[in-house]
Design a protein around this nucleic acid. Structure first.
Lengths: 213, 213
DNA sequence: TAGATTGTTAATCGATTAACAATC
DNA sequence: TAGATTGTTAATCGATTAACAATC
């Protein structure tokens, strides 16, 4: 168990790289490779070798000089850190094209997180049915009740921009502490609620801008 | 027309905020609001007011002291900068759940960019058909030929991780200069090809990590 | 003129990277 | 011991923010 103190003082940039590190070591273990080093990692994940070593050093001495890193040890270390063993249930709000794609994305195949509830407005014909994989699609008016009952703390917003803030408010009301938001707006939530936004149009526009330089 | 020199020397962090600025001014214009200021913008888009002013100052004097910014002027300015008027055709590779959602996402409703070609391997039953919106789904072996013919320079990768690098190589071969990548790997491409990656699982894992702190 | 808000400077903060002594 | 590679320091770079003179 990594000290809470270390976790909390971790630079944000480092924290964002943890999933990449975990995934990298997991892949090597699966391929039967037992050791690696910062130089070779750098090549494969596109992060500078010094950055990798510095990131690791924040957790103590994870490697051995002259040898490198043991893949199994490090996989387990980062797995622990990310709580890979912990089952996480997600609620998804907005069963449109994107919402359906996310439901079928099957996060659970690679991780212990999965969407277990979905919501939309009653006008949506899918409300009241279940997906082929057995996820119930509820009316959004039941959101607070259901989420509290299932003790879910993480949600995905895939509704239209116009309704996103209103949905976020409802989620906060229901006790949600983490939101993955696909609506292209800045959500206002209390300080103890975490938001990660993914803005597809913005990413495309940024890409085009860099291309035009 | 903004000087090429300015565009190229723009800090990366600033460039990534441009779509937000554009969108913000566009919204205000649509709502009939004719002026705003950095303080109020900051509130709504979640970027520090000083950062906004500093970003703007890189382009010259876009505002007026004691007054603020004229929404229409600024919308047009950032629209120009982002090439909002330019039609951009996109090729999409990988017509699975995510691919189909992206096709139906209708980027064109808000911007002049749209997916006009889709690809998958011949084994996919959709190959040879068209989507309801009229986008042809080609066999991936026709990729280079078609993309060159249509002079497309931007593509979206939504294939499985295992095939992503191979697809990227084919795209580069076909002359693509910008890739929006949804596969959770670091793509290796030549220096003149731009890549923006969106890694859904990573975002979720990062969110959960911050929640557990 | 008085009030508001910019544009810009200077300070601060956070992240990256080069370099190398430590050490396996 | 010789060679490899870490862990860490110091330098550099880039981004954010506070503060305020300039000016509309």
């Amino acid at each position: 168990m990594v000290e809470k103190k270390i976790r909390e003082s971790l630079p944000k940039a480092t924290a964002k790289r943890l999933p990449q590190y975990y995934r990298f070591f997991k892949k090597l273990v699966d391929e039967g490779v037992s050791r690696t080093n910062s130089q070779s990692m750098s090549q494969k994940i596109g992060v500078d070798a010094a950055t990798i070593r510095r990131d690791f050093s924040l957790f103590g001495e994870l490697g051995r000089r002259g040898y490198g890193y043991n893949t199994k040890e490090l996989r387990d270390f980062f797995g622990d850190l990310l709580g890979q063993d912990r089952e996480t249930h997600l609620a998804l709000i907005g069963v449109g094209n994107l919402g359906r794609a996310l439901i079928n994305y099957h996060f659970q195949d690679r991780n212990k997180m999965r969407i277990t509830q979905a919501y939309d407005i009653a006008e949506n014909k899918l409300v009241g049915t279940e997906t082929s994989s057995g996820i119930p699609i509820h009316d959004i008016s039941d959101l607070e009740k259901n989420i509290k009952k299932a003790k879910i703390t993480t949600a995905i917003i895939s509704v239209k921009q116009e309704n996103a803030q209103e949905v976020a408010d409802k989620l906060v009301e229901a006790g949600i502490k983490g939101i993955l938001n696909f609506a292209p707006i800045h959500l206002k939530v209390p300080d103890d609620v975490h938001v990660q936004s993914i803005d597809l149009t913005k990413e495309l526009q940024t890409l085009l801008f860099f291309m035009s330089e």
